[in-house]
Structure formats: C-alpha cells, structure tokens
Computed example of a mutant assay.
Amino acid sequence: MKRILVTGGCGFIGANFVRWELETYPELEVTNLDALTYAGNPDNLAGLNGESRYRFVKGDVADRSLVMGLVAEGFDAIVHFAAESHVDRSIDDATPFLRTNIQGTQCLLDAARAAGTPRFVQVSTDEVYGTLLPDDPPFFESTPLAPNSPYAASKAGADLLVRAAYHTHGLETIITRCSNNYGPYQFPEKLIPLFVTNALADIPLPVYGDGRQVRDWIHVSDHCRGVDAALRQGRAGEVYNFGGRSERFNIDVTRAVLTLTGKPETLIRHVTDRLGHDRRYAVDCSKAESELGWQALTSFETGLAATVDWYRTHTPWVNRIRSGAYRS
C-alpha cells in the first residue's frame, strides 16, 4: 500500500491516525481531506507541512465535484474518519450530521466505485448499537443497530450505505466500530479533555445526571492500530469492534481526572441529564483480536495519566481552541 486518502485527518482520531501511519510506514503517502469545521484543527498536524509524503486538501466530503476529482487521482485505500460527532450538537440540530455523515459517505463511496479504489474503511462508533443494561453482554458485530441519538442514527445510516456498497457493487468495504476514545489532540467538548482542561483552570466539571453512565474507554493509539489492522488485514464486507475492555462510570472517570490534576471534588457540578442519554456502552472486540491479531495495549490508568500530562504541557494548543484562534 503506497497511497491512502484519509478524510477528517485534522480531527482528533484522524490526526492521530495520520501521524501513526506516516511514522509506521516510511514509504506511505497520505492525503488528508478535511473541511476544517469547528473540530478540524490544523494544529493537530503541526510539523507535517514540510513532510513530502503528506498533503492536505481542504474540502467537504459532501462536495461531489471535489471528491470525485480527488479520488480519481488514484489511491490504494480510503479511510473515512470525517464526521460530525458531538451528540449534544446533533440534538440541537441534526442537519449538519445528515450532510456530512450520510451524504458525505455516499459521495465517497460513489467516487471510490468510479475510480476503482481497492479498499474503503468506514470508521464508525459503538453508539450505533444503542444502549446496554447493567448485566447485558457487550455489543458484538452482529448486534442489531438501534441508535438513540441523531448523531448515532446518522452514523448507522452511513454504515448501512457502506454495507450496501459491498453487497450491491462489490466495493471492498470494511466497517470499524469503536468505544469511547481519549488521548492527545481531542477537542475539549468531549468528557475527558473538557474535564481535564476545566480542572486545570479551576472551572467546574459538568457531570450529566447522576454520573452513573458507563463507557468503555480506549486510548486513541490503540484505536489507530486497530483501524490500520482492519485496513491491511480485514476481510471485505466485515465489521470489527475495537474497545479497551475498560468500563467505567462517568463519575469515576471524573474523580480520577480530579485526582490526577490535584483538584478537589467540590469542582463537580451535576447538571440536567442529556436527552435520550444512553446508559451503558461496551463492545466485545474478540473478533478483532482473533482475526487481526490486535489488542488494546494501554491501560486506562496509564493512558489517562499520560493524557492529563499532555493537556497540562500543551496549554498553548488548548488556549488557541478556547479563544478560537486555531480557526484563523
């Protein structure tokens, strides 16, 4: 594999993936297509502008003319991260989620089919499966889709279009679904970076409801290795789950952040719960472990401590986001 197109490569997971691919494969060329919406931060890829194997293209995945022309240049694979992904924003207005996550995905699939792109990886989320009761087994790849938020519904719709492209047109597609990511370069509206940056600034940490929602946490580096394994070794038409086997109550994650930042629990503020808030997510990743030889390597305790240290030592990055300067 010599040339890949990554969409959404200026976002949190996409940027980590771009860096990982370039560092791991010395001969690989990466083109990054990103519209630079509010969560697309060029600072996430600082230092790559002089890298001859990296190219940035500003553009919207739903811009059919642009996407068709770009994909026609010829790539060995498309790895599709680009998405609107914040649940609260989808509750306020689902329209951008439909455009990017559904229309954008179909646009890329059409372009890949027209260009004969050998492989298409759709990076999705465990939220398409819905919610679990406390004693339910984790989600399997065969678990029926039952999304409960507009964001999750838009990702489920995109996944079904990717599945259809494989079964109808024979496009070699793979879908990956992952549990909650954390790590460097995550936009500080998601739980861990929001709470870390708030705690460091002595700003209250808003915990939804009773904080007893359960999430399975995976470090972004483990997720990136999983996507790469699916890209290079996955079977066409298949779905692969990636998780950290680290289920935690949100309130316990909050307390762990406060301990690592040396801040008091008096900073915790319980706020009105999110509409339709799923109670528990957890994925079974044994298929990825057995078929791809993948496993999560970073424990939650180690990964969270490293993440807190990253945000503590990257205050200029945080300040540029808080001020909006990163968009200039």
Results as ranks from 00 to 15, higher is better:
225 R>E: 15
201 A>E: 13
324 G>Y: 07
194 L>P: 03
287 K>H: 14
244 G>N: 06
192 I>W: 04
252 D>S: 06
229 A>H: 14
168 T>R: 10
168 T>M: 12
263 K>H: 12
281 Y>D: 12
45 L>I: 08
44 N>P: 06
239 V>H: 05
55 R>N: 05
97 F>T: 08
268 I>V: 15
225 R>M: 11
9 G>S: 06
194 L>G: 01
85 S>Q: 09
20 W>E: 14
112 A>E: 03
159 D>V: 00
73 E>M: 10
139 F>M: 11
112 A>V: 04
155 K>L: 03
202 D>G: 03
246 S>G: 01
201 A>M: 13
282 A>I: 09
126 D>P: 01
28 L>M: 14
143 T>R: 08
326 Y>S: 00
223 H>Y: 15
302 T>M: 07
147 P>L: 08
26 P>N: 04
189 E>K: 08
289 E>C: 12
257 V>E: 09
279 R>E: 12
2 K>A: 05
85 S>A: 15
299 S>P: 07
307 T>P: 11
102 I>F: 03
170 G>R: 05
203 I>M: 04
230 A>C: 14
201 A>K: 15
133 L>S: 08
279 R>K: 14
20 W>L: 14
46 A>Y: 05
238 E>V: 02
278 D>R: 10
159 D>A: 05
33 L>S: 02
146 A>L: 08
51 E>R: 13
252 D>C: 01
293 G>C: 11
269 R>A: 07
99 R>H: 08
190 K>E: 15
162 V>S: 06
84 E>W: 10
153 A>Q: 11
245 R>M: 10
115 A>R: 05
263 K>S: 01
